[in-house]
């Protein structure tokens, strides 16, 4: 009983490292390949552009990671984002003097409300996350169309101060990137150094034992979807400010990109595991793909299919790596 196979555990650590190093290597490989085709890829300007574009995605990926860690999924993200963005856009349109911070707050609150509704449904009833979020996706999208009357809010209807949220900078860093960094620091601390953060992982890893450990599973689920909503609401404001337009179909299907960033970053779709460093890399890879493909003259119509293939290959590679580790563990078992 006291006999210990230390090798096994270090093997477990190795997979995680292998996956992240692999991802990093892949990112470098793509970057070099693209750079060889088009010299303007690795310029400061383009990198800044790329990171700015990835900022919103990476913020959303944090929320999605927490949702997936609890064995859930959120398909309503695009709709919530649109609803929060549209509400904010309409408000700043009729109150041009509104403080940009108030606008950000408004969008976040709308997101929190949306997330809390989903969280309540999932925590309090037996409706599975995929159904609950699929249903609310429709509801929020419908509401977005209704409050806007089917019309756009376009750039010239928005006050400059609002559009400046996305273009301005704090401490010399673009606001979007700045916000993303702040959120990542907070999220890292929350996930790794607070009780509630760890409880999210406990619930995802084994819901039954979580109950026995005295964790309130319902509270955790509610919290996770509310956080997802808050981040989505915030992202909605940033999105509308960045693209300077709010439409009924803003961010339609964007949840797929966010889920993709998580899956690429090694978040286990079956719940229980997922790391901040992983989703940063996952978001970055998607961001690079989006940025690099046009630079090497790949038609924008190819991007969807390429993205889809990358996701599929990533999950399959993950599965195969896990299989070979399991097989190795079996081989090492002495008989």
């Amino acid at each position: 009983m006291a006999e210990v196979t230390v090798g096994k555990s270090s093997k477990g650590l190795n997979i995680v490292k292998f996956r992240e190093l692999g991802l990093l290597g892949f990112i470098l490989l793509i970057s070099i390949a693209v750079q060889m085709r088009n010299q303007s890829f690795l310029t400061l300007e383009n990198i800044d552009d790329m990171i700015t574009n990835t900022a919103i995605l990476s913020v959303l990926a944090i929320g999605m990671m927490l949702v997936i860690v609890t064995r859930g999924i959120d398909l309503s993200l695009g709709s919530t984002l649109a609803l929060a963005g549209m509400t904010t856009a309409l408000t700043v349109k009729s109150n041009p003097g509104m403080n940009p911070l108030a606008a950000i707050l408004l969008g976040t609150v709308v997101g929190i409300v949306c997330g809390a509704i989903i969280g309540l449904i999932i925590a309090k009833t037996n409706v599975p996350p995929i159904i609950a979020t699929l249903g609310m996706m429709n509801v929020f999208r419908g509401l977005t169309f209704m409050i806007s009357g089917g019309k756009w809010v376009s750039a010239h209807q928005m006050p400059t101060s609002f559009k400046a949220i996305a273009t301005g900078s704090v401490l010399g860093i673009n606001t979007l990137i700045f916000i993303a960094i702040i959120i990542y620091i907070v999220a890292y601390y929350f996930i790794n150094h607070t009780r509630t953060g760890r409880q999210i992982y406990a619930v995802g890893s084994n819901p039954d034992s979580a109950k026995i450990s005295g964790i309130n599973n319902e509270k955790i689920l509610f919290l996770v979807y509310t956080i997802m909503g808050a981040l989505t609401g915030l992202a909605g404001v940033l999105w509308v400010s960045k693209f300077a337009s709010a439409q009924g179909d803003t961010a339609m299907g964007y949840e797929i990109n966010v889920i993709a960033a998580c899956v690429l970053g090694g978040v286990n779709i079956a719940g229980g595991s997922g790391k901040i460093s992983g989703i940063i890399l996952g978001s970055l890879l998607l961001g690079i793909l989006n940025n690099a493909l046009p630079l090497i003259n790949v038609s924008p119509f190819w991007q969807n299919a390429i993205q889809g293939c990358v996701i599929l290959v990533a999950v399959i590679v993950n599965a195969l790596v896990k299989r070979s580790v399991d097989r190795n563990n079996l081989m090492r078992r002495k008989i």
Binding site: T194, R195, R198, G204, S205, N206, S209, S213, G272, S273
Partner: peptide, 25 residues
């Protein structure tokens, strides 16, 4: 147990040691 978490966390789940005030683990 929680297979995805470390041994330490499995031992202390539900009664983690936290710093008073900041509530840091």
């Amino acid at each position: 147990c929680y297979p995805d978490l470390s041994v330490t966390e499995n031992i202390f789940m539900g009664h983690e040691k936290i710093q008073k005030g900041t509530k840091r683990i």
